[in-house]
Amino acid sequence: MRRPKLRFIIVLSGLMILALLFMTCQTLKENIGILSGGKVSTSDVEAVEKTTEAVRKSFAEITDEEEYYIGRAVSAMILSQYPVYKSDAVTKYINRVGYAVVIHSDRPETYAGYHFLILDTEEVNALAAPGGFIFITKGLLKRCQDEEMLSSILAHEVGHVSAKHGLQSIKKSRLIDAFRIIGSEATKRYAPEKLAQLTDIFEDTLGDIAEKLIESGYDRKYEYEADKLSVKTSVRTGYDANGLLDFLGTMVDDTSTGSEKGWFKTHPTAKDRIGRVQKEISAVSSMPAKNDARTNRFQSAMKALK
């Protein structure tokens, strides 16, 4: 009597496993079909679209690719206002320092990677557009005395990108409108009317970010957060995070020409930031030391700066 029962259980569980195996293969196949952009049935697309529309609610759901297109346009606006400082040697050096920091940041990968560019102006400023387009002015570079100071500023800007501060300055109502239009269309190409609506929202979105980035500055809490991230990333990279304090020190009570523009205008006062950065630094148990090899290469790279 026991054997047939046992056989029944074995056969039944065997069938169940086979069914599971079949379902798994089917799901995998369908997933891959959708994900790899293969031919997908209309019902699949509709299901995904509906869910997508329901799920996308905030800046956090902007895809890396959309962020890239926003960042490109914000950068194009910045580059329409400032000329580029053209020196391959200095630009290369800035990008190497920048990348050393990027790979130790909380967000080393973005859609098209990070790129650093020098703006040809004496104004002291550094800006980060969404997705990893980072700008530093010649005026700011001239204030840096070593690689630690420079890396701390680049790390602050990378922090704005990794914490998506630019995207957070987009008005929520705009995002809701954009997500509604995007969610209602199953194709990647938009009909003229939808395209016009989406482009209107795109322009307003750029306006929201540019206003914060260039005119009024981010919310103070974002600046403090970027400073905090700068200290954290610098230490991970092997830089002495005091570079940020050294730099902020050059900004205290500055009354030189242009001290009402750029970083002075869009950031909390240096004194205010120094206190908070000191607290962050004192919490670091083992701070990397400055190094002559780095300071030497910084000085030789900056020789070309005019």
Binding site: I34, L35, G37, V48, E49, T51, T52, V55, R56, E61, I62, T63, D64, E65, E66, Y69, I70, R72, A73, A178, I182, E185, K188, R189, Y190, L195, L198, T199, F202, T205
Partner: peptide, 15 residues
């Protein structure tokens, strides 16, 4: 969604 939305939203056409 990131993959489902690839190429959609703010894309090359909008730019």
């Amino acid at each position: 969604n990131e993959v489902a939305l690839a190429g959609k939203g703010f894309n090359r056409q909008v730019e």
